[in-house]
Design a protein around this nucleic acid. Structure first.
Lengths: 218, 218
DNA sequence: TAGATTGTTAATCGATTAACAATC
DNA sequence: TAGATTGTTAATCGATTAACAATC
């Protein structure tokens, strides 16, 4: 009621809250009852200050004497992040990367539902991949509209990324996970997360080379 | 000689330079001769100021009248980023994600060489995937040492990530691309790039849900 | 109580953006 | 020349870290 979603948490904090959730769920399943911010920090690879700062977005139950109750804190973080099972997800592109992402998604994200894959290759259309139907990308707009899809994952060729984005946005998608190396143009109300694997590789290579150079000089 | 690698460029700038390289190469192959910082900025999805700031790390050839010569700038960025073909790359884990990454790597990174894949599953050991041999992970340390591998890609189960990292670092790896959701502990001289696909998904889901909530209230 | 930790505010740090003299 | 852009420095912005009163 009181502008619950007005103070939209920034992407970095959301990312860390996801890490905390994973750590807390694991600890909870291992039977750990309580922890301090410094414990969560070391397991998440951040500073204790950062943990406490991030947890200001979450209704916490910490006390100076006992720290946080693991189970309750995990639940609070889950509530804060939202379950998002309300909306379904579509995947664009069923090439090697798309198929791997689909498998990964189905294996690790039981709380979200991948509802359809869209492909241009007619050999794949009509089949199923990991129990998800593959449909002709020509039917994308209609599907997104009728199923009220809000989340799309892009794993298609670079040159198709922007046209596909335009269609998705026009059809009502508000959140896009982009695995292509293209920087997408999208309206401000649409959230775009770039996961540029090619860039990741290039960056790692850069620092490996830089390190070698330094060693040679030392 | 004069501390060429002393001012190690920070990861964000390196990332953007990779984007500039891609854009410039594409423009060059399309026959574009010259551009201004504002053109490169709009194609890379950043501000013109940012472009010029980033290009301070690169020996540039820009002039107020004509902007930059595309081909020369592309070459300068390539030189700055380094080719890194000196070192070979190993992949740990040949599951769905690992295989997809291998395919992606072989298809898009001809300038780097993937030299071996390591797996624990005996059914895969001894085979080839995309012309790359799959070896028993027990032989990892010896291989990394003898081939002087400096770059490793992690695509194995979460619980194996930290032990594998320890072995890689001990054997001389200096740069790790981590596709597991685990935050790795590694010495400061080792560069670790986290590409957490699970987190990407969760973040996209968060903003989709947040957006829906806002709309409901508006 | 004494001591350590939380929740939160203040200070610092780093990165992006703006400004502007030099210049073609 | 006049005008626009570069290279670079200064200002702003945002995020992380430090500090500290409240507290159990």
């Amino acid at each position: 009621m009181v502008k619950m979603s007005k103070h939209l948490i920034n992407p970095r904090t959301v990312g860390r809250l996801c890490i905390y959730r994973r750590v807390l769920n694991q600890l909870s399943s291992q039977g750990t009852k309580r922890l301090f911010s410094r414990d969560l920090a070391s397991m998440a690879g951040v500073s204790p200050s950062q943990v406490r700062q991030d947890l200001m977005n979450v209704p916490t139950n910490g006390t100076p004497q006992n720290g946080y109750a693991v189970k309750e804190l995990a639940e609070a973080v889950v509530t804060c992040l939202g379950t998002a099972q309300s909306s379904s997800v579509v995947l664009l592109g069923a090439g090697h990367l798309g198929q791997a992402l689909l498998h990964y998604f189905q294996a690790t994200q039981p709380r979200m539902a991948m509802s359809a894959v869209f492909e241009i290759n007619p050999n794949m259309v009509g089949k199923h991949l990991h129990d998800v139907p593959v449909w002709d990308i020509a039917t994308l707009d209609q599907y997104v509209r009728s199923a009220q899809v809000r989340i799309a994952i892009l794993a298609l060729p670079a040159e198709e990324a922007q046209p596909a984005t335009d269609r998705l946005v026009a059809a009502g998608v508000t959140s896009i996970l982009n695995f292509t190396p293209v920087r997408l143009n999208a309206p401000a109300h649409v959230f775009v997360e770039n996961n540029d694997i090619q860039m990741s590789l290039e960056r790692v290579a850069f620092y490996a080379a830089a390190h070698t150079k330094e060693k040679v000089q030392a």
